[in-house]
């Protein structure tokens, strides 16, 4: 893994946009088809992990990811509570749809940053030499 192969570098470079597209498709279409926030987030995290395989020495902003994860966590807690307590009168179909998509999106981003943090902490701090 330390010396990079040319084939892997080029092919994963080609594959990035498709993996990203697939991840966002799984997240945004999660209410209607199989998948959802967790699965899509894991697919998105695979992008960062393959980036480590391509170029191990390129640094990643772990601190930004950590703050993003915390903010997303607070959002995930706050949004359902507001949704449940504010509009108690009548939940229309459209509102439910928006709620589901937004929750899936938040959870997807949270899972993506969480997986990336776990992986890079493990790789950089536990893996020794890189």
């Amino acid at each position: 893994m330390t010396d990079n192969s040319e084939i892997i570098t080029r092919m994963t470079g080609l594959l990035y946009p498709f993996i990203l597209l697939f991840g966002f498709y799984i997240i945004l279409n999660g209410h209607a088809s199989p998948g959802g926030g967790f699965q899509g987030g894991a697919v998105l995290a695979a992008v960062f992990i393959t980036r480590y395989l391509v170029d191990p020495n390129r640094c990643i902003r772990l601190r930004t990811l950590k703050t993003a994860e915390k903010i997303l966590f607070v959002c995930i807690i706050l949004y359902p509570t507001f949704f449940l307590f504010s509009a108690t009168a009548n939940h229309t179909e459209l509102m439910n749809l928006i709620y589901l998509i937004a929750m899936n999106f938040l959870i997807g981003l949270k899972v993506c940053s969480g997986f990336t943090i776990i992986f890079f902490r493990f790789a950089f701090y536990e893996g020794g030499i890189l």
Binding site: M1, P34, G35, Q39, A42, A45, A46, F115, E126, G127
Partner: peptide, 25 residues
């Protein structure tokens, strides 16, 4: 299918790479 997606991504990609990094230690 959604369990299958999760298993494919987590079990095959992330766990394998994590184990390989651990093997470096």
């Amino acid at each position: 299918p959604d369990v299958a997606i999760a298993e494919a991504v987590i079990g095959t990609t992330i766990t394998t790479v994590l184990y390989l990094v651990a093997l470096k230690k």
